[in-house]
Computed example of a mutant assay.
Amino acid sequence: MKFVDEAIIKVQAGDGGNGCASFRREKFIPFGGPDGGDGGSGGSVWLIADEGLNTLVDFRHQRSYKAQRGQNGMGSDMYGKGGEDTAIRVPVGTMVTNVDTDETIGDLTAHGQRLLVAQGGKGGLGNIHFKTSVNRAPRQFTQGTPGESRELKLELRLLADVGLLGFPNAGKSTFIRAVSAATPRVADYPFTTLHPNLGVVSLGTDQSFVIADIPGLIEGAADGAGLGIQFLRHVSRTSLLLHLVDIAPIDDTDPVEQVRTIEHELAKFNPELLERPRWLVLNKSDALPEDERQQVAEDIVRRLDWQAPWFLVSALARDNTMAVCQQVQRFFEAQRAERAEQRADLAPGDVRLRGEPQERS
């Protein structure tokens, strides 16, 4: 299946049905009062997150969605039937933006979560509502209001705990194959990964995390060069970034310069990404003589003035890869423990509903 992570669709909610101007006419009742019913409300358009979907490719074929119109009111006090809603299923992790205003409408991050994107119109009033002591035979009624219409931008952002960064051929796909059950394509040419791959790393009972293999970035990715601009958005949800670097590139490029280049692209795309925890993974240690590996790695770390954790691994030989995963698991366990401690420290009286007045002493 083709991976598509961006689409633009148009949604149109149903119009409300019109009210009715009618009068009761029965045998022996030639001048009955008004009995025009109200129009039904128009159907609304909803987006529903579905964990069974992982791409927006279906929206390349169907771009317009419309809910049902409300039925008009009728005589004999009969109200019109409301229009049926339209439900559109999207992958979990879909962000929804109004194209015209650039306003974020919502973010669907859990299976079954619903988001109203176009409200149906209200039904019009029948003439039974306009009867007064003065006007016993009103002919007034109101039209139904139109349903909302919007053009929406759907943007899929992967929900992963860990994101892999690195230049093309840094070994990200090989790394994710080594530590998870994911089997991305691996080859010795740039942009082997053409779409993000997700893998689940399991270290035992209740010890697992999701890792995302993001296509390689190159210089100018934030401005649209290469494939990186299409996928930089997918690292925005991750809690931890693993920055993979080829410790012995065959083209003799400087690993330090590669790290700096990607840092520059991250800063251009979203400066907050540089504030996120990021660990350095020096890959392809098997390409160097065993007695030189540690020295080369320490030299790179020293020149980068790297303060965060770093690792020397060989994803191909699966050397030290599980040690990285164990450290990642400890990182998330420490985060969960810290959040639990913060919740425990919060006194019950400190929790109030928004707008709830405080008690006066």
Rank of each mutant, 00 (worst) to 15 (best):
F3E: 04
V11D: 00
G14H: 01
G16Q: 08
N18G: 12
C20I: 12
A21W: 03
F23A: 07
R25H: 15
P30C: 08
F31E: 09
G32N: 08
G32F: 11
G32S: 07
S41L: 05
S44E: 02
I48L: 14
A49N: 00
T55S: 15
L56F: 07
K66N: 03
K66P: 02
G73W: 10
S76M: 07
M78E: 10
M78G: 02
K81Y: 12
V92K: 10
M95C: 13
T97S: 11
N98T: 04
T101I: 11
T104I: 15
V117C: 13
V117Q: 10
Q119D: 15
G120C: 09
G121V: 05
G123C: 09
G124D: 02
G124L: 05
L125Q: 14
N127Y: 14
I128T: 15
R136Q: 08
G144A: 03
G144N: 02
G147A: 01
E148A: 14
E155I: 05
E155A: 07
L158K: 12
L159T: 09
L164S: 00
G166C: 02
G166P: 00
I176N: 04
R177C: 05
S180Q: 04
A182T: 00
T183F: 11
R185I: 10
R185G: 04
R185C: 01
P190L: 04
V200P: 00
V201L: 01
L203G: 00
G204N: 02
S208Q: 10
I211D: 01
D213P: 00
G216Q: 01
D223K: 13
Q230C: 06
V235F: 00
S236I: 12
S236Q: 14
S236D: 05
L240Y: 01
P255R: 03
V256C: 12
V256S: 03
V259L: 06
T261H: 07
L266A: 05
L266D: 06
K268N: 04
K268L: 14
P271N: 06
L273Y: 12
L273K: 10
L274Q: 03
E275H: 13
R276S: 06
R276L: 10
P277Q: 01
R278S: 12
W279N: 01
L282D: 03
N283D: 02
L288I: 07
L288R: 07
R293V: 07
Q294T: 08
I300V: 12
L312A: 09
A323D: 10
V324M: 05
Q326A: 13
Q327M: 11
Q327K: 14
F331N: 08
A337S: 15
E338I: 02
Q342Y: 00
D345H: 10
G355S: 09
P357G: 05
S361N: 07
